[in-house]
């Protein structure tokens, strides 16, 4: 029984790590700040939840579990606040998102000379 829980927990941790990698890939590939925030929130919600759940399964009962819950709760409370502060600051500084359909891997190079550059250093 404990052995089975150990394997399930390990699998969840691995899934969380995979989700973190996917989030990082998204952050690298998406074209502007706002879309990158979406990719980063993959790690903050899905990745963190899966990993902490996995750690909860392999941990002994007791305070370790409560602390894992605390870490999870803290990440879930702070990550939207940080994401909102980031998006709000970028928007307030005049960085405008790209609107409309386009291919990520098309001729529009990620991080190229899109409108996302217009806000660089204008927050004075």
């Amino acid at each position: 029984m404990a052995e089975a829980l150990h394997w399930i927990g390990g699998a969840l941790i691995l899934a969380g790590a995979l989700l973190s990698i996917l989030g990082a890939v998204g952050v690298l590939r998406f074209p502007d700040v706002y879309t990158r925030i979406h990719a980063a929130s993959l790690t903050d919600t899905g990745g963190a939840t899966l990993m902490l759940l996995g750690m909860g399964l392999i941990s002994p009962l007791g305070f370790v579990m409560l602390k894992l819950l605390l870490v999870w709760g803290f990440i879930m409370l702070t990550s939207p606040a940080a994401a909102n502060a980031l998006a709000n600051a970028a928007f307030g500084a005049g960085v405008r998102p790209r609107i409309g359909t386009f291919q990520i891997m098309g001729e529009d190079k990620p991080g190229g000379s899109g409108p996302e550059r217009s806000g660089e250093g204008t927050a004075s």
Binding site: I13, G16, S20, G23, A24, V27, V33, R36, I37, A40, T43, D44, G47, A48, M51, L52, M55, L68, V71, I75, S79, A82, L86, A89, A90, A93, V95, G111, E116, R117, G119, E120, G121, A123
Partner: peptide
Amino acid sequence: GPSHYDRILAANSFGTKTVLLIAL
């Protein structure tokens, strides 16, 4: 980068992963 906001986003996300890494 290219903008400050990209860098801070990356730093914040890196920090979240560091939390998970320390726990792990």
